[in-house]
């Protein structure tokens, strides 16, 4: 538990540091936690023992993933006044783009799978 938490926080810390360096050096705006996730994935591939150490703690965090966006969600209440007339536009954008993206993504996957002869077995 202690070592798994330490490893997760260390990956995040390295990711945040790397994000600042990339932002300053190359102007690349990648979020630190995403870089930390890629680092964590690399470490898991390198060592099965490391993966076994991380697994229960990572599963514990992910099992309650939804809880983590409650504080930010409550914050939107302060925004409701400023949204006003834009609310309908935003809802249309969310629903319309979700339909288009699911359709486009699924068709692309199916077509490319047929062309390349990829199957799951």
């Amino acid at each position: 538990m202690l070592h798994a938490l330490l490893a997760i926080l260390a990956c995040q810390l390295i990711g945040e540091t790397l994000a600042r360096v990339l932002q300053a050096g190359l102007g690349l705006g990648l979020p630190g936690p995403v870089l930390g996730m890629i680092l964590m994935l690399g470490l898991m591939r390198a060592s099965a023992r490391f993966t076994a150490l991380i697994r229960p703690v990572a599963q514990g965090i992910l099992a309650n993933l939804s809880l983590l966006f409650v504080p930010a969600g409550v914050g939107v209440v302060g925004h409701l006044g400023t949204l006003g007339s834009q609310t309908v536009a935003i809802l249309l954008a969310v629903v319309g783009s979700t339909i288009l993206a699911i359709a486009a993504g699924a068709v692309t996957f199916a077509v490319v799978a047929r062309i390349t002869g990829s199957s799951d077995d």
Binding site: L5, I8, L9, C11, Q12, G15, P31, G32, P33, V34, G36, M37, I38, M40, L41, M44, R45, T51, I54, R55, V57, A58, Q59, I61, L62, L65, L67, L68, F69, V70, P71, A72
Partner: peptide, 19 residues
């Protein structure tokens, strides 16, 4: 904020399902 802070570690933890 203590709950909000865990968003970062949770992103790192997403490496597990990907792995």
């Amino acid at each position: 904020q203590f709950v909000h802070f865990l968003l970062g570690p949770a992103t790192i933890a997403l490496a597990l399902p990907l792995f």
